[in-house]
Design a protein around this nucleic acid. Structure first.
Lengths: 187, 187
DNA sequence: ACCTGAACACCGTTCAAGT
DNA sequence: ACCTGAACACCGTTCAAGT
């Protein structure tokens, strides 16, 4: 990458982080370019899609989440590791307001720039879930998809001002459901 | 209302139902007006906001949901009534793809055209929850907000193609959590 | 190589002018 | 009363032209 291009790249990323933090996932690409004193087409050259921009914005968070899994796996019991990581995962899918919708659709779209990140999170979560299931502390009728889905649902709740105040409590409700072997069937 | 206005109203509603069923909550208002052979401004006269349009689209669903609560309350045990109605509630908040986001934000915005509908659903749900709690079959540390939030989260999951296949199973997971008195605390 | 302005086809809002 | 076309300020996409 040429020197001026590299400078544009990191500057755009910094500006985008600010604007996206403030306006959420629907922030105007034009606004970002404008605030960065760069042509809109230049922004689109570096990040051809909104997904590509968010992939770049969240890649450090992603690495941290994967590393956290390693730490938890070696120093905690399987059930504690699962729930602690689950909490981090909820925060990750809600890195920015509304981004969980992008993640949810990228999760099923191999062409999305966010697909690889989703797959990583999915795989790491599935590993921790399996470990807790082997121990018998996590309910056996769940798989990696379910974990990812519940993580996303909680991330979505956090993004809704109406629900955010109860999100922490609902995390406990759902986490306890994951750690409960179903004794009775509900219809 | 004048005769021609009434005709426009019901025709617009029918067309809107089709387009919204196909394209979800982000359907273009212009498209709806176009397909109805009516000026865009005429559509906006009848439904000044997107919320107003969806309020009209879902008002019959809303009545049905409230009536369902009455039926369940008189003919079922409190826990069965709660879970059955909860299932209907999830379907309601997901009447159209993406509309749950509109509902979630309307829930906290008294100025929204959907606020009254949200309040109704909230109140009905809280009543059924309270009844099951009094009986001791629903966990005591939940309130009407929590029920509405979980309903919305499940409705959101159903709207995501990546998660929809597991939504039914996750309904069971969450429903069983609601009907479980928490024995141990999870962190 | 990389950047840029401009043209394009869209969106919802608003309102003066019509019937 | 009710409807309408048009002007407006926005959006993301695309590309020919610049450095």
């Amino acid at each position: 990458m040429r020197a001026d291009a590299r400078k544009n790249y990191s500057h755009l990323l910094a500006v985008a982080r600010d604007i996206v933090t403030e306006h959420g996932v629907d922030a105007s690409m034009r606004d970002i370019a404008r605030r960065a004193d760069v042509g809109l087409a230049t922004l689109l050259r570096h990040f051809p899609t909104r997904e590509a921009l968010f992939e770049a914005l969240m890649c450090t968070n992603l690495d941290a989440l994967a590393q956290k899994a390693d730490e938890l796996e070696t120093s905690n019991s399987p059930d504690e590791a699962l729930v602690s990581w689950f909490r981090e995962g909820v925060a990750f899918v809600h890195s920015y307001r509304g981004v969980v919708d992008l993640i949810a659709s990228a999760h099923a779209d191999p062409d999305s720039a966010l697909f690889a990140s989703c797959a990583t999170v999915h795989a790491v979560g599935a590993r921790l879930l399996l470990r807790a299931q082997a121990e018998g502390t996590a309910r056996a009728d769940m798989n990696g998809d379910d974990l990812f889905a519940l993580m996303s649902a909680l991330g979505w709740l956090e993004g809704q001002p109406a629900f955010a105040p109860r999100a922490d409590h609902l995390f406990h409700v759902i986490a306890s459901a994951i750690l409960t072997n179903p004794s009775k069937r509900v219809d």
